[in-house]
Amino acid sequence: MTGFPIVAREDFSDTTFLLEIHHPAMARASKPGQFVIVMTHAEGERIPLTIADFDRDKGTVTLVIQAVGKTTREMQDICRAGTELYGIVGPMGEPSHIGAASKVVCVGGGLGVAPIYPQARGFKESGAYVIGVVGFRNRDLVFWEDKFRACCDELIICTDDGSAGIKGLVTEGIKMAVEAHSDIDEVVAIGPPIMMKACAETTRPLGIKTMVSLNPIMVDGTGMCGGCRVKVGDRMKFACVDGPDFDGHDVDFDDLMNRQRRFKEDEKLAVERWSETCRQRALLENTDGGG
């Protein structure tokens, strides 16, 4: 079976990197808000990653990945331009509803900055006034500023230490946007669950519709296993086929965060083992090179 070629790789920091994958059919079919499930090799696990960009002319889809656990660290190590992914399937999930909103705030935090990009671009293309709010820890971690400026009417950069843009979390950025504009129709927020929860709580008293994109653990991604089930209102929904977008004011974020801790011990073991493997490999390379 042939793999899926990685045609470009860019590193934004020592944990965040970008992969551009050649897949013309997927580039044609992708819509904002959708995701893929990826396998690095035959012994790998299946992990969901949001499609951060797609280029229908070039025939590529782009993923932005943060190396936190074993699989993403391994990808950071071995997925270079010129290599192949063992498996990638998508685009999955219901596309984001880029509908009638005429003024929208698109909020991305940390890694969520990448997945919010196609939504911001989509809203812009549909004629909306787009206010982008993107959050990073500090200026060294800022990426894609030019891409966002190209599709946002206003861009508010937030950094924890104030080294770029305003000092504060993205919720500060939302407050700024809301103070300046009284006619915001919708807020779209993507990032770690705790961030999305904070954004939803910021907009709840203002009564502004807030859509979030949920990222539970997944296996098949086609609605068959139920592992990605989330509580929305009083119903149970599957993030992979009913989502990944849901109304942030109805989502039970605490439940989502609890379920993301399902494999905490196994993940710790896997990371330790991977670190050990890397350490052994580095030792071997040193002794060979030294000689």
Partner: peptide, 13 residues
């Protein structure tokens, strides 16, 4: 192949 974790990456716990 969760039975072969951590040689295979998918856990079952």
């Amino acid at each position: 192949s969760a039975g072969k974790f951590p040689d295979f990456d998918t856990p079952l716990h």
